[in-house]
């Protein structure tokens, strides 16, 4: 019952372990090329997206060899050690191998520790406060979004318009149930929670119109709670903002209200 101390000596194949390692490396390389070739994400429209997409690629590169290893050992074992019809033999009475077990505790531990550290670094990076941030208040209600620019006369808008290149600091509020403010092109998502104000940051880098999506089930109209976000040149943003301010001033003159 003494556990064997090293890898088993194969009887009729020359070097199955060496062969398997070669197959593993080649298959993993092919797999990595394939998964990296896939166009996973929506357009990359802010600095956060660049960091997150890179992290995603690293995760893929680490994952493929693990999956290939498991598949390869399973398939190889089935092909190589399959019972013949009427085969009444038992397998080799191997109860374990301490050295091997230490290895497969240690290596995964190191891998996940490294991934966690990397995740922490990226997290700090994408959430870092930046100078000259534009504050935007996001207000979620069943079933639409509205936006307010607190530093710009509290201008209100049904569409989110942000200037390219300037860091945005979002404050997020909900008036009824939980919603989740998500712009897939920005990769950033944050729940809007009744009773508290939550925060997220982006720095848009790409001109265009993208979707604001509600990602938290909020009732009947949840799936239609989609609106646009426009990333525009800073000049165009200033012009838009001036127009909005004028509109607001005019409305205040006429109604005296705060619409």
């Amino acid at each position: 019952m003494t556990p064997p101390t090293g890898p088993q000596e194969p009887r009729d194949t020359k070097h199955p372990v060496v062969q398997l390692i070669l197959i593993w490396i080649v298959t993993s390389a092919i797999g990595i090329v394939l998964v990296l070739a896939i166009d996973w994400f929506p357009p990359q429209a802010d600095t956060q997206a660049e960091a997150i997409d890179k992290q995603w690629d690293v995760l893929l590169v680490v994952s493929v060899p693990i999956f290939v290893l498991v598949m390869m050992v399973a398939i190889y074992s089935v092909l190589r050690f399959r019972a013949r019809p009427g085969d009444k033999r038992d397998g080799a009475p191997i109860h374990g191998n301490t050295r091997l077990e230490v290895v497969w505790v240690t290596i995964p531990f190191l891998i996940v520790s490294a991934l966690a550290a990397y995740g922490w670094i990226v997290l700090d990076d994408i959430e870092a406060k930046k100078p000259n941030e534009l504050k935007v208040l996001v207000k979620a209600q069943q079933f639409n979004w509205s936006f307010e620019y607190p530093d710009n006369d509290k201008v209100q808008s049904a569409q989110l318009v942000v200037p390219k290149g300037r860091p945005i600091d979002f404050d997020i509020e909900a008036s009824d149930v939980i919603h989740s403010f998500w712009v897939p092109a920005f990769r950033m998502k944050q729940d809007a929670v009744p009773g508290i104000t939550t925060h997220t940051r982006v720095t848009p880098t790409r001109i265009g119109t993208y979707e604001v999506v509600c990602a938290e089930l909020c009732g009947l109209g949840h799936s239609t709670m989609r609106q646009g976000v426009r990333v525009v040149e800073p000049g165009a943003f200033a012009a838009w903002m001036a127009g909005k301010r004028e509109e607001k001033a005019k409305a205040a003159e006429q109604g005296g209200g705060s619409q």
Binding site: Q48, A51, I52, Q55, W56, L59, S63, I66, F67, V112, L115, A116, Y118, G119, W120, V122, L123, I126, S180, W182, P184, R187, M188, K189, Q190, A215, E216
Partner: peptide
């Protein structure tokens, strides 16, 4: 493996829900 991905906070911020 997708569970590991779902533990990495920056990735989860995008793919949660």
């Amino acid at each position: 493996i997708s569970g590991i991905m779902l533990a990495v906070i920056p990735v989860v911020i995008h793919v949660s829900d």
